[in-house]
Every structure is written in C-alpha cells, then in structure tokens.
Design a protein around this nucleic acid. Structure first.
Lengths: 93, 93
DNA sequence: ACCCATTTGTGCGTATGTATA
DNA sequence: TTATACATACGCACAAATGGG
C-alpha cells in the first residue's frame, strides 16, 4: 500500500505518501471497516501500521476531516461521521 | 567511548535532548546514584529537574528500558534492574 | 466503601530542524 | 524556493491503576 521508496515516488510523481494514506483510510471508512461513530485508530497506531511519520498521518487525517468523513476531538481522537459524504474523486491538493 | 560490556556509552554521538537525558540517567544507574531495586524518579520529577518535556523524558526512559537497565511498572514507576549494577564504591549498603 | 494524590499510559496540537526532490 | 517527509521537542489534557488515609 505504501510505497515511500524513492523509486515508486519517481514513477508516480503525484502519489504522495500522505495521499495514499488518505485514500486508504477513506476506503476503510466508506467500505465500513471504520464505522460511523467509531473512533479511527490513533495517530500513533497509524504511524506504526503504515510505517510513516506522524506528520504524514496527520496530513491525511486533516484531509479526511476537511472532506467531512471524520471529526476530530482534541485529546480523544478522530471519529467517523454518522453520514459520511462520498469522498471526492481525488482532488490531489 | 567507554565499554560497559553490553552497554555501549557513546559520547558526542548525538546532541539531542532525549539522548542527553538518557545518557545522564544511564550514568546515574551505572554509577550507583540509582541503585538496583530502587525506583527511578518519576517522569514529572525528571521533567522538573531536567527542564524538558515529559515526552522527552519518556523517550529517554524507553531507551533505557530497551537496554534492560530499568523496568517500568505502570502506575508505580521505573525501577533499576538488578543485573547492571557495577557500583564503583557501594556506599552504605 | 470512599476519596485523593501520584504515576504511567495515551492522545492530540503545535513548532522546529533536517533531508530530499 | 517550495513541497514532501521524517525526527525531535514542548505543551496540554484525560484515562487508568496504585496506594495511603
């Protein structure tokens, strides 16, 4: 899923790590892996799972928050919105 | 460079705050300031003493724990391991 | 049983430094 | 110069467990 190796970055110039994380998390939300009302795994957990920096995770989370897919409560976590709007077809910042 | 056997102390290697805290605490353990079985000062105490963030203290503690120098018991504290106790003078006990 | 302070565990928010493309 | 990414660092807040009254 994550290809942060220099090579893949070269081949897919627009496939930034944070967008890949964002897309994967979006898939999990829309696919039901993360259900409405439930908490999204913590930043630390996602850092360990994806093997990327915390800032990268935070950037992906922020994007999903702006999409309305999740809501972040400080010191508690990010929660899947009850009626998640379908994600945009990859605006790509 | 000083070789303590299984513990390699590296001076000048890094200037990071957390490594400096780690090195200082390691010195206190190996030097007998913190003796085996005794509890290491709490994170809050170390925060006040070193004047750094708690996360930084925790990072140093975690490093020493991975080295086997200390063992952490949740809600109680971190305790100096029995094994690595080459106290130079063994004062009063 | 209760309260309360202590302590570690956890988590988010923010800022900075470094490296790379 | 800018954007991406990682690591470090500080701050703050809350949870959970321990232990002493």
């Amino acid at each position: 899923m994550i290809d942060y190796g220099r090579f893949m970055i070269e081949f897919r110039a627009n496939a930034y790590v944070w967008t890949q994380v964002r897309d994967e998390l979006r898939q999990r939300i829309l696919g039901g892996t993360y259900r409405p009302g439930q908490v999204v795994p913590s930043e630390t957990t996602l850092v360990q799972e994806f093997g990327v920096a915390r800032n990268t995770i935070r950037k992906a989370i922020a994007a999903l928050r702006e999409e309305g897919l999740i809501m972040t409560v400080p010191h508690l976590g990010s929660f899947v919105s009850e009626r998640p709007a379908p994600g945009p077809s990859d605006p790509e910042g």
